[in-house]
Amino acid sequence: MEIARLLHTFGGPLLALFGGIGARSMGTLVTGMGSGVRTVDFAGSPRPCKPYRPDPGRIVSGDPAQTVSVAYQSDDGLFSAGTWTCQPGKWHIEFAQNEFVHILEGVVVVTDGDGLAKTYRAGDAFVSPAGFSGTWDVREPVRKYFTLGGPPG
């Protein structure tokens, strides 16, 4: 019952944050109706990681080698979730979609276009709204869960 109360209390703001994505899925999760839709377990079998680096013109310092493992992508391509890793380095970033981040390991300093810097460590969570631009400075190797939502800009 506690889970249902929490979903009822926080479900509306979360759905508003992600533009209503998953409203039908959330209802299925709460009611347990047999729709054939299953949850996606991040701890399940490992998914292939795609290694990459930011465009060299965006890198400020270090060698921010990165991997991404997409655990889920919606049929319409407007929502995805997965795990991301990055080695120390700093680069300019521009977010085309809303991104929710939960830092699992490491330290990153995110600085916005006005110069306001925030440090995030393991256990921290935040959202970078579509249109955010600034820098990511990975100080210690980072592993995070992410969700991306909304139409690409």
Rank of each mutant, 00 (worst) to 15 (best):
E105Y: 04
D55A: 09
F132H: 07
P141G: 01
F18D: 15
T119W: 07
M1L: 02
A96Y: 08
I59E: 04
Y52I: 02
D112H: 02
S35I: 09
D114H: 01
G123V: 06
F79N: 01
C86S: 10
T83P: 10
D124W: 00
I21H: 15
G123A: 02
D137M: 02
A65K: 10
E105L: 03
S74M: 00
L6S: 12
L148Y: 12
E99N: 07
T83Y: 15
A96D: 12
Q97Y: 00
E2H: 15
V60M: 09
S35R: 06
F10T: 10
T85K: 03
D55Y: 10
H102P: 00
M1G: 01
I103E: 11
D114N: 01
G77M: 03
K144E: 05
V110T: 05
K50F: 07
G32A: 13
G44R: 02
G11N: 06
R58N: 14
G22T: 08
V40T: 10
N98K: 11
V101N: 15
L104N: 15
L104R: 15
D63F: 01
S35P: 04
P51K: 11
G22Y: 09
F132I: 05
F146S: 04
A81V: 02
T111W: 08
R5K: 13
G149W: 14
H8E: 13
S25P: 02
K118W: 02
D41Y: 10
Q73Y: 07
T83D: 14
G82F: 03
T135S: 00
R139V: 02
L78Y: 08
R143T: 12
G62R: 07
G22A: 06
R24F: 03
G62N: 09
C86F: 06
L148T: 07
A96R: 08
P129V: 09
T85G: 01
L14M: 13
Y145A: 14
F100N: 13
V138F: 08
R24I: 02
G44W: 04
G57L: 15
I3C: 13
G27P: 14
R47H: 11
T67A: 03
V108H: 08
L15I: 03
G34E: 15
A122L: 07
Y72Q: 01
P46D: 04
A23W: 13
